[in-house]
Amino acid sequence: MLDRELIQNRGFRNVFTNGKATGFEFQLRMPNYRGVWGSLIDGVTVTVGDQTWDSEVPQWTLQGREFSITELRASTDVRWQLDEPAVITVPHEGGLPAGVHHVSVDIALQAPYIPVEFQPSIFHSERKVTIVS
């Protein structure tokens, strides 16, 4: 089972390249009532404390494959399913300190069956999550 919150408690951690923290990642549950093809994902804006990363910045890992948002918008064969959280990776030199962080997200999805004037749909969520070490 996944957390009811969109931001999952499990999976919040720093990511390392050659032993150095180069960013952090966390998992997001699909906010919509259906899963969607990757091209309908329009990005996620991420805020941790007083720092914000624009929706063009985070990398997406879906179904084991990593995409920039530009790649995802042009994709044809990957999905964000209701039962498979996305891994969001945010580049951030040095990573985040271990401890509790207030994380908030605005997830943008395109729904072609809703008039384009009202698109994209924006799903906001925030919660406190912890980097263990």
């Binding site: 259906r34 918008r73 072609p112 069956y113 384009v116």
Partner: peptide, 9 residues
């Protein structure tokens, strides 16, 4: 329920 997402790209 299915979808035909006309604005897929």
């Amino acid at each position: 329920g299915s979808w035909i997402d006309s604005r897929m790209w």
